[in-house]
Design a protein around this nucleic acid. Structure first.
Length: 272
DNA sequence: GCGATCCTGGCC
DNA sequence: GGCCAGGATCGC
């Protein structure tokens, strides 16, 4: 569910309530823990202070100092909730709960369990090793982006954007939106796309992601930020979810196709 | 490169 | 009951 703008919105909402000292941790028996064990997480977390929250692509990195971070990926259905006080029982599918020294709580809820909970250090992060630079990282120059794209000549543009190894943070909604903004056909293979078009694409991607952040992300059903607020970006999408209707700006009809077993929405009249 | 797969819930 | 969903990995 959450893509870069949603994760960034969550990050910002949580940053405001930090730092806080962790007193107690609850992990559900089916918590999606990866590359480490629940016991190691309990050991690392208890008594430590969450100083700040970072983000790389769709990963949230809770910095606990001493070169240790709690890594959380929200998958398709993951949500994080900050609670000023313990209120009754935990929601169904709560997999992680941190209770802070002042009685406040942080909960990670994920029905489908496509998310990830893990531990990392600055120099050993098995997740970040696998993915490319964050799309909003200034280190990702247009020249280096074009170079990275050229490593995947056979991918369609849609698959290129969803590939987190090229650069990280795009998901299905913003990929469709960015391709519309760049006026590029999602079915085109990278090999048929010029350097100029790739530069245009990167610009469109960044503009789309920033717009998503400005509107606090896209809420279709479950997405809420750390304080329970809905996003507003769903009211500004040009193509996503508009099959058979016109693009929001009225440029043309939106068509829905399947690529990599996922829905792509685009406007054949405007994207080439 | 592409499709199946992990999992639950909501909607037709 | 079947299909779909904002993600990512694995095997062909």
């Amino acid at each position: 569910m959450p893509e870069l703008p949603e994760v960034e919105t969550v990050r910002r909402s949580l940053q405001k309530i930090l730092p806080r000292i962790i007193e107690r941790i609850y992990l559900s028996p089916v918590a999606p823990v990866e590359t480490t064990t629940p016991a190691a997480i309990r050991r690392a977390v208890r008594g430590s202070t969450i100083q700040s929250v970072g983000r790389h692509g769709k990963y949230l990195l809770f910095d606990m100092g001493q070169d240790r971070s709690l890594v959380v990926h929200l998958g398709m259905s993951g949500r994080i909730m900050f609670l000023a006080q313990s209120s009754g029982s935990r929601e169904k599918h709560t997999h992680l709960e941190l209770q802070f020294l002042d009685g406040t709580l942080l909960r990670y809820i994920d029905a489908r369990r496509f998310g990830t909970i893990s531990l990392a250090s600055n120099h050993n992060n098995p997740f970040l090793e696998r993915i490319g630079p964050d799309y909003l990282d200034r280190q990702l120059t247009t020249a280096s982006y074009v170079k990275r794209c050229r490593c995947h000549p056979g991918l369609s543009l849609k698959a290129l954007l969803l590939n987190q190894g090229v650069a990280a943070g795009m998901g299905n909604i913003y990929a469709c939106e960015a391709l519309y903004q760049a006026r590029l056909d999602p079915r085109r293979r990278v090999a048929t796309v010029s350097d100029d078009e790739l530069r245009r694409l990167l610009k469109a991607i960044r503009a789309t992601l920033r717009l998503g952040i400005r509107y606090g992300g896209t809420t279709f059903r479950d997405y809420l930020d750390g304080r329970g607020h809905r996003g507003k970006m769903q009211d500004f999408l040009q193509v996503y979810g508009r099959e058979g209707r016109k693009t929001l700006d009225g440029a043309g009809l939106v068509k829905k196709i399947t690529q990599q077993a996922r829905s792509t929405f685009y406007c054949p009249a405007a994207q080439h």
